[in-house]
Design a protein around this nucleic acid. Sequence first.
RNA 1: CGGGGCGUAGCACAGCGGUAGUGCGCUCGGUUCGGGACCGAGAGGCCGCAGGUUCGAUCCCUGUCGCCCCGACCA
Length: 424
Amino acid sequence: MRYSRLFGRTAKTAPHDADSANARLLAQGGFVDQLMAGVYTFLPLGLRVLHKVKNIIREEMNAVGGQEILMPAILPKEPWEKTGRWSDPGPEVMFQFKGRGGADMGLGWTHEEIVTPLAKQFIRSYKDLPFSVYQIQDKFRNEPRAKSGLLRGREFSMKDMYSFHKDEADLVQYYDKVRDAYLRVFERCGLHALVVEASGGAFSKYSHEFQTLTDSGEDIVYYCGKCEYAQNREISEYKAGDTCPKCGGTMKEGKAIEIGNIFKLMTRFSAAFDVGYTDADGAKKPVLMGCYGIGPSRVVGTVAEIHHDEKGLIWPKSVAPFQVHLVMLTAKEETATAKVRETAYRLEQELESAGIEVLFDDREEVRAGEKFADADLIGNPLRLVVSEKTLAQSSVEWKPRMSSEAALVPLAEVVAKCREFLAA
RNA sequence: CGGGGCGUAGCACAGCGGUAGUGCGCUCGGUUCGGGACCGAGAGGCCGCAGGUUCGAUCCCUGUCGCCCCGACCA
């Protein structure tokens, strides 16, 4: 991608009302644009990050047998009345309105009411179980208070998966499998998550939240510094300094951002929609369900919140908008500039041919300082500079975003070194 | 929904009861050229919206809408 043609630009100053780090940096770097409170447009840079996060989630959900579907966002009232959620929580959470002819409908804020009757159509026998389906879709919640940039929006991206089982043992086994898949998702996105016990509602003792420790979090968790056993403050009877009940380590208190949540729904929804199956013994039995959520847009916000410095974002390689930020610095003399230009454009092509994603700052009228500032703000993992200075040594300057040291790398070795760096 | 803050040029801000300014950005010309340079010339405003007070309101008052923060809330 040529920087000169990139839609969306960096800004020298941050929006005055962007107080959280993720809102400030993502807006200033040209990743997102705020339309209203809790509602954002993803610009090309931000969308690339969001896509990478979603694709990591897809890979891991597919790996545990999830099958991707896409349910509608506009939903009819009727199934919500069956579970009582049309009126409670009702419009407090769900955007509700009338269609033509006065039909009540609303925007999806979760999809148990849709996926359960859907699954019912395909479940007859124990032979049809288990299975799980998921979707990645925008959810709508009428938040009383949207806040903190991408961390708590009124429209936000969500991956919601639902699993269906013949008995509790099968549900529990799958639930644990998804928990491990979730940890892989977050690690791959550059986030370390604690598996935190949280309120399970009426149908199981606990649900599990995936919480990333950071001072900008809005949840309080108690966790063991040694084995990472953790509980949300909402249910916890521990306090900082207590002995961990699992390993004898010491419990600590920390602020955290919730980036995922998994529930054993048991028969909460299958009962409401009368979803059962015929077992091997010929008896009709209720189906058990689990549900599993991750907010990809919130993950993007959380990564920004955690991985940055005073100059800008520092994306993990796995989710960076581009892998390499190539900067071309023109020279005083046109003959030298011509050589720089020729080398930089050729390097862009060589990198792309090698399958490396390049953001090429090809602007000619822009000074070096501004280009470096933009590179730091956008935060791609590796910056390469081609200039008269580097070409004097047949080299390009090599500087990882997370490092303060720059080095010269011979032109002939750059592509191979990039491959190596990105694979590490 | 309670409390607080803020709405003035694309962005960040200043200002004042007498009809609007600075910096950045943008356009043109010139000098610069490895960490957001400099000089000169320009373009760009329903001072969030509505009502009130006043001879006169961007400024004072009331209401309203919007954004941000704290709290409540967060299957």
